[in-house]
Design a protein around this nucleic acid. Structure first.
Length: 817
DNA sequence: AGCACGCCGACT
DNA sequence: GTCGGCGTGCTC
């Protein structure tokens, strides 16, 4: 029989050298090496062991000698042919490696911690072996007696960190050493490490001394004898992992593992009757169900205003798919995956539901994955990466709030869940449903082009009306020199609502929760030492943190530059608004919802429950208050700074602003009262604000499409952005200019058919992140296979060129900048 | 990106 | 004379 050769995707391969590598399959592994199994292979000069996934088998091609597969890591394939095909499709489009694509489809719990050992032959003549020359002798000198086993990592470390694999392999070939590798599965983090002081606080402080302020902070936080999680301690004090480990080792801290809840057990949730649909919901359902029944690739848009009950339609559709023996995937934005939503699904489908999202522990995700792969769960609800869930016989894929930016991955592979969903629906004859009150311009454009039928839900649940909307012009207030965040219109509406015993939600239009702290005397602002950005103040930990790299500094109340004691938070964050509310409405009970108050698990739900029970009058927060909330007693909603997000240079800024304001306004008047919404803005005549106030998507869309056409942005054109990053700014620029020239020259010759102007280099929004300068080249061109071949080619060429050492580059299609 | 190999300066 | 600097080239 001919020698078996497999083609694998190797983890260790970078984009520049990524391809399918061929390995010889030793006879004894012949049965175990199958397509879709993971293997261990020697890679590179040092024959370092690398993980790889078998993608195909090959005939002996080049005739050059091949290295052998060393070990097979799975008893059964972890990926099927369809998934491997999807991986290849993604690689071609996303400018990433095969392995990147494969990895994103599998749960982290599947990755193993490798434990490689070498055992000296029991009959070895140690004295003779040690006398050997060179590296072999050095390696063998580490063994004390025949039959002894040493870990590869140990050998490596004791020989100064140099990889010894080649020497070790040679010795193994001679029979002097025996190679073994046991693959212990990575421990699922079902437990959390908790720490407390193991000695009296004063004694601990004395032993630490004045030189490590972070460690002293740890002591003072734990001084009351309580326990705190490892993670939280790091957040609160900025202490390093290593420092905590050291303190445990020195006996200052004691550690215990506390059980964390596993994925919710849905078998306990009481079953609910199938939802009863309104006439409109029924119509939408009927239309979508007909598409589902076709069992051909279909996609449709469920265009439903906030509160129109899209979820009920989803539930019915999923039930129908299950009835046909098919499965379902529901994608929700991270923020939308609330316990209430999960309970709704569990009440319909019980234990057939599996949850997949990033907040789950590694172990939980692994459990969910197994449950789906085995077919025990046929309904998957999850965030972005759940689009890869190995659901058997997929019948329907639903993307709720499909316009949400969280569906785009910021790391390689830089996929958009919407694109992967389209591919899967097409491949698996499934129905794809985009659900939204404010569809992305791309999706709505597609529906206008006749790609997706549209089903509209225009009535709000239980007949609640749309709120009256008041656009409050804030320009006058500023002219009069009156400070404050709450204008007179909003103030009087608040007085009215609170007077009638109603509740209000105030929305701060902030990306993230950036509150910058500064010194009123000298103007000092904490800046990240490795990023070109100022740090954000977090009151919970009393530290200023960098959003880009996580570095933090302690804020003491005294300015480190001038020593003054007049530090203030510069932009009106939620805290400042809260203060103003207290002054203006001393009797009102205010609940603040922002990252400061939200970083403990479950805090979010607790707060919402409090508000629902009427334990507060005003809920104040950022983006978190916009999604999925449903409060009967809320009749007033205020948008404090509607234009905050409007003028960003990103072409999606208008779309995001429209979506945000529309959703917030939709919060008011959900039930029997007609609510009121106040939009405070400095651009009271801006078409986006006006359209949002009227909840008029069509008007917004028509105008926005014109803008996109004028700017040549998606959906009428594709945007390819190349980003280069490196520590030496001049080097980054120089390399990027060379890349630009290369692109231009290729488009003069070989690639004249896809010619497009190359813009840039332009500095990235945040030019320096983690000490690396980042610049972009931008091109507007149709994203065809030919275009991608040009881009992939120049990327590879760039990365292989030694002139570009120290500079990395990657490409992104239609990114959020 | 790693990692090994090769060819030059500071040292026992 | 050697240890180790990092420039250069390759990864089945």
């Amino acid at each position: 029989m001919a020698e078996k050769i497999c083609a694998v995707a190797v983890d260790a391969a970078t984009y520049a050298i990524d391809k399918l590598y061929s390995y010889r399959v030793p006879d004894e592994l012949r049965e175990q090496v199958r397509i879709g199994t993971r293997v261990l292979v020697p890679f590179g000069f040092g024959n370092k062991r690398a993980e790889a996934v078998v993608l195909a088998f090959r005939k002996d091609d080049g005739g050059h000698p091949l290295k052998p597969v060393v070990e097979v890591l799975d008893d059964a394939p972890v990926l099927d042919a369809r998934q491997l095909k999807l991986a290849a499709w993604m690689r071609e489009r996303l400018y990433c490696t095969y392995f990147d694509c494969v990895r994103v489809m599998l749960p982290a719990g599947l990755w193993f911690k490798r434990n490689e050992t070498y055992t000296l032959a029991p009959d070895a003549d140690l004295a003779a072996l040690r006398a050997r020359e060179g590296e072999a002798g050095a390696v063998l000198a580490l063994f004390d007696r025949p039959g002894q086993t040493l870990a590869a990592s140990d050998i490596r470390q004791r020989l100064g960190g140099r990889s010894m694999t080649r020497v070790l392999d040679a010795l193994a070939g001679e029979g002097v050493l025996t190679y073994r590798s046991n693959t212990a599965q990575r421990s699922g983090d079902k437990t959390e490490r908790m720490l407390s002081l193991d000695v009296e606080a004063g004694a601990a402080a004395a032993r630490i001394g004045r030189r490590s302020p972070a460690r002293l902070d740890v002591v003072s936080i734990l001084a009351d004898g309580g326990w705190m999680s490892w993670k939280e301690l790091c957040y609160m004090t900025g202490v390093s992992d290593a420092a905590l480990r050291d303190m445990v080792k020195k006996g200052l801290l004691r550690m215990r593992h506390e059980e964390r809840l596993r994925a919710p057990d849905f078998s306990e949730v009481p079953k609910a009757a199938p939802p009863v649909l309104s006439t409109q919901q029924q119509q939408a359902f009927d239309g979508l169900a007909a598409l589902l029944d076709e069992r051909t690739p279909r996609a449709a848009l469920l265009f439903g205003v906030t509160g129109s009950g899209k979820t009920q339609v989803y539930l019915k559709l999923i039930a129908r798919a299950l009835g046909q023996g098919r499965g379902a995937i529901v994608l929700v934005p991270e923020i939308g995956l609330t316990p209430q939503v999960l309970r709704q699904f569990a009440a319909q489908f019980g234990d057939e539901v599996a949850v997949l999202h990033s907040a789950l522990s590694v172990g939980e995700r692994y459990d969910s994955f197994k449950k789906i792969q085995s077919g025990r769960a046929r309904v998957v609800i999850g965030t972005r990466s759940a689009v890869f869930a190995p659901v058997k016989d997929l019948g329907i894929l639903i993307i709720d709030e499909e316009q949400d930016g969280a569906y785009r991955s910021e790391q390689s592979p830089r996929y958009h869940a919407r694109d992967v969903a389209k591919y899967r629906a097409a491949q698996e004859n499934a129905l794809l449903v985009f659900g939204s009150a404010t569809p992305s311009v791309e999706t709505y454009y597609g529906s206008q082009q006749g790609k997706y039928p549209v089903f509209t839900l225009s009535e709000r649940f239980l007949g609640a009306g749309l709120p009256d909307v008041l656009i409050a012009d804030m320009r006058g207030l500023a002219r009069e020199g009156r400070g404050g965040v709450i204008g007179p219109q909003l103030e009087s509406e608040l007085i009215g609502a609170l007077g009638r015993g109603k509740q209000a939600i105030l929305f701060l239009n902030r990306r993230g929760n950036s509150r910058v702290i500064g010194c009123a005397i000298c103007g000092w602002v904490p800046e990240c030492p490795s990023c070109s950005t100022s740090m954000t103040y977090h009151s919970a930990s009393g530290r200023a943190m960098c959003h880009y790299c996580g570095a933090s500094v302690r804020i003491t109340g005294r300015c480190p530059a001038c020593g003054g004691e007049s530090l203030f938070t510069e932009t009106p964050g939620t805290q400042k608004v809260e203060q103003e509310l207290h002054e203006k409405f001393p009797a009102a009970r205010v609940l603040r919802m922002d990252a400061d108050t939200m970083h403990t698990k479950g805090a979010h739900e607790k707060l919402l429950a409090q508000f629902a029970k009427g334990e507060a009058d005003i809920l104040l927060g950022t983006q978190m208050v916009t999604k999925g909330l449903d409060f009967e007693n809320v009749t007033l909603v205020g948008v404090l700074d509607a234009d905050q997000s409007l003028y960003a240079q990103d072409y999606r800024a208008r779309e995001r602003t429209f979506s945000l304001i529309t959703q917030v306004v939709g919060r008011a008047g959900r039930r029997f009262d007609t609510g009121k919404a106040v939009i405070q803005t400095y651009s009271p005549t801006h078409p986006v604000i006006l359209a949002a106030a009227r909840q008029d998507y069509e008007a917004f869309f028509e105008r926005e499409l014109e803008t996109r056409q004028a700017l040549r942005c998606p959906p009428v054109c594709d945007l390819t952005v190349l980003t280069a990053a490196g520590e030496v700014e001049q080097q980054v620029l120089k390399s990027l200019l060379a890349l630009k020239a290369r692109l231009q020259s290729l488009m003069e010759g070989q690639y004249a058919d896809v010619k497009a102007p190359v813009l840039g280099p332009a500095a990235a929004q945040v030019v320096r992140v983690m000490g690396r300068y980042r610049y972009h080249l931008t091109m507007r061109a149709r994203n065809t296979a030919r275009w991608r071949s040009l881009i992939a080619g120049v990327l590879r060429e760039f990365l292989l060129d030694s002139k570009n050492r120290g500079v990395t580059v990657f490409a992104d299609e239609n990114p959020d900048l």
